[in-house]
Design a protein around this nucleic acid. Structure first.
Length: 253
DNA sequence: AAGACGGGGGA
DNA sequence: TCCCCAGTCTT
């Protein structure tokens, strides 16, 4: 849930979710429509389907227990290098590189001396994270939690609280006078207005609220560009985020 | 190596 | 308004 969605916004949904589907086996047999409705407005609803696919894979491949090896975790749907490392570190207390946006920013400032990390993660960055990770499992897991918290609460992207930072006196960026972002202006802002993502989001919002199939004619007013709307509906069907029956569009059964 | 993919809250 | 958020998957 927290892949690209702030944890503060995730937390209430996370509690409700685990109350309804406490185990992978519970989620594996849920209705996809219920999964998507419970996901609500967390964004990127494909993640909800991947999470259910992940639960099914855990049941089928691992007897319903979350696996504890990096390879097995990485092979699960929706689990990438970050999440695999986070599960290893935070669920199993193991030494693992946990390189999320917060840790990337902390390392960029404290070690590399730049205001923000490069737009795209590099292999060199992973090597750096590995090199500063303590050797034993317990210390490494604590390091991973600490560096993430530091980035999330103190070393924030917009207005870092350097006065409260425990490592301010060894921060390369701070010591250099907190120079501005090197690639400021080159970071392309993600377009939103008029995009397929906005269009898909509107359709999904209607389908989540609907208690019966929605005819395409009822969807037309949602979007000025009819061709784009058709294309987006087709992509939602392709992604299994929606289904179509003679009565109209609805969440998958 | 790029693009696609939601939505909300803070500055 | 703009920016960013405990990324992943596809091409």
């Amino acid at each position: 849930m927290s892949q690209q969605t702030p944890v503060a916004r995730v937390e209430p949904s996370w509690h409700a979710w685990l109350e309804r589907w406490p185990t992978p086996a519970d989620l594996a047999t849920a209705e996809a429509a219920d999964v998507l409705r419970m996901w609500g407005t967390l964004g990127y609803p494909r993640r909800a389907l991947r999470l259910q696919d992940c639960a099914r894979a855990i049941v089928e491949r691992h007897g319903g227990e979350v696996p504890s090896s990096y390879e097995d975790l990485l092979a699960l749907p929706g689990i990438g290098p970050y999440t695999a490392g986070a599960v290893l570190a935070f669920a199993f207390g193991r030494r693992a590189v946990v390189l999320d946006t917060n840790v990337r920013r902390v390392l960029a400032r404290a070690v590399a001396g730049t205001a923000l990390p490069h737009p795209h993660q590099s292999a060199a960055e992973v090597r750096l994270a590995e090199s500063v990770l303590p050797d034993d499992d317990a210390s490494a897991a604590a390091w991973s939690a600490a560096s993430m918290e530091l980035g999330a609460l103190v070393c924030t992207a917009r207005a870092p609280r350097c006065g409260e930072c425990p490592v301010a006196d060894l921060c390369t960026w701070r010591l250099a006078g907190s120079p501005p972002d090197e690639h400021a202006g080159r970071r392309r802002t993600q377009a939103w207005h008029g995009t397929d993502r906005q269009c898909r989001g509107r359709v999904m919002a209607v389908l989540r609220e609907a208690s019966s199939p929605v005819p395409r004619s009822d969807l037309a007013p949602l979007w000025p560009d009819a061709a784009q709307l058709d294309r987006c509906i087709a992509s939602l069907l392709e992604d299994h985020l929606a289904e179509e029956s003679p009565e109209g569009l609805h969440l998958p059964t």
